[in-house]
Simulated assay, not measured.
Amino acid sequence: MKKLYKSDNKILAGVCAGIAEYFSVDPTLIRLAWVLFCALGGSGVLAYIICTLIFPNKPMDE
């Protein structure tokens, strides 16, 4: 069963990289989509902060 974690491959908090690992896509695509979401008037910054607080860190054994 796949679980959503913050990634170790991080630039800020690992949220975008964690989402990319979950969906098996390139983290750059998720980061660009997130920036686009923020630029188009979305609440991307607030959503990122909430995801940072909610997503657990990746366990060391994986």
Rank of each mutant, 00 (worst) to 15 (best):
G44D: 01
K58Y: 06
I19T: 03
S43P: 02
F37L: 11
Y5K: 03
C38R: 08
A17D: 14
C51S: 13
I50M: 09
D8S: 10
G18R: 02
L4S: 05
P59I: 07
I19G: 01
V15A: 02
K3E: 15
P27I: 04
W34T: 00
P59V: 10
A20Y: 13
G14L: 04
A20H: 06
K6M: 04
K58I: 12
R31A: 11
I54F: 06
A47H: 06
G44Y: 05
S43G: 08
N9Y: 13
A13F: 11
I30H: 04
K2N: 15
G41D: 14
L12N: 13
D61H: 15
M60K: 08
S7G: 07
K3V: 07
I11W: 07
S7T: 06
F37P: 00
P56G: 05
A47E: 01
L53A: 15
Y5Q: 07
G18I: 02
T28R: 06
G14Y: 05
E62M: 09
C38V: 11
C16D: 10
R31V: 02
L40Q: 13
I30F: 03
I50Y: 01
G42R: 10
L12A: 12
V45Y: 00
W34F: 09
V25D: 11
L40I: 14
D61E: 15
K58S: 13
F23E: 13
L4W: 08
L36R: 12
C38M: 14
L32G: 05
F55Y: 14
L46G: 13
G41T: 13
V25A: 05
I30V: 15
G42V: 03
I54D: 07
V35R: 09
F37S: 01
W34D: 02
C51P: 01
P56S: 09
D61F: 12
F37D: 02
G14D: 06
A33I: 04
G14I: 04
S24P: 01
A47R: 02
I54N: 08
I49G: 07
Y48R: 05
D26H: 13
D8C: 02
V35Q: 11
D8E: 12
G18C: 05
N57E: 11
I30G: 00
V15G: 01
K10L: 09
E21K: 02
A13P: 00
C51F: 15
V15C: 10
L36W: 09
L46Q: 12
A33Q: 10
E21Q: 11
I11F: 09
I19V: 14
V45H: 02
K3L: 12
A39K: 14
D26Q: 10
K6V: 08
G41P: 10
K58N: 09
I50G: 05
L46W: 00
P59L: 07
